[in-house]
């Protein structure tokens, strides 16, 4: 139930998936909104603090996610999926993981370039490693921004593909990630084995 099987996503995978989805879309929206805040906005200081705090928490969740992915078996792709779909999905997943880590890392490098730690909701401090290149905050800032836009394109493709599978192909792709798949493959296998 908690762990993946060859036909189902386990609860851990499902919870992490939707938690990360919520955080990523939320962080993007927050980031997009907060950079244009008026100096006298009450959110001028709180919004960036929330953005950084959630970003750090997301990083820890993503570390767990990568470990969970490495040490768990992965459900096999649905048989309705074409070879091209499998390849595209795999590439998109890979790019989202890499992109997300680049965005989180570059975000960290912006705020810590002068040696200031990042406070997570005022509770813990993530220490700074300082500056590695000149004008690190600017370079990291551009990477953070452009990769965030790039990630959003991937997110749209990913979500669009999931909806396409659900409503057009009417297969179990989205249901599997919602934890309510009918486990068709499994059933079939069991029937065959009987």
């Amino acid at each position: 139930m908690i762990k993946n099987t060859t036909t189902r996503y386990g609860l851990l995978t499902i919870i992490i998936h939707w938690l990360v989805a919520l955080a990523v879309v939320g962080l993007f929206a927050l980031g997009y909104w907060m950079v244009d805040l008026n100096y006298y906005s009450t959110w001028y200081q709180t919004a960036p603090n929330i953005h950084k705090s959630v970003g750090i928490l997301l990083f820890t969740v993503m570390l767990v996610r990568v470990l969970a992915r490495v040490f768990q078996q992965k459900p096999v792709p649905l048989e309705q999926h074409s070879a091209l779909e499998k390849k595209l999905a795999h590439t998109a997943h890979y790019l989202m993981y890499v992109g997300l880590f680049i965005i989180m890392l570059s975000g960290y490098l912006i705020s810590t370039a002068d040696g200031r730690p990042i406070e997570v909701f005022g509770l813990i401090e993530v220490p700074a490693l300082g500056s590695f290149v000149e004008n690190q905050e600017d370079i990291a800032g551009e990477i953070h921004e452009y990769f965030a836009y790039g990630l959003m394109v991937l997110v749209l493709l990913h979500a669009g593909a999931a909806l396409k599978h659900h409503f057009i192909d009417k297969d179990q792709t989205l249901n599997r990630m919602l934890g309510r798949n009918k486990d068709t493959t499994f059933k079939k296998e069991t029937e065959e084995n009987l």
Binding site: P48, S111, D114, R116, N135, E137, D138
Partner: peptide, 16 residues
């Protein structure tokens, strides 16, 4: 002007 330094990189980035 890129060398502005107010001893806070987040502010300097914004000032640039």
């Amino acid at each position: 002007t890129t060398s502005i330094n107010s001893n806070h990189v987040e502010r300097d980035k914004h000032l640039r």
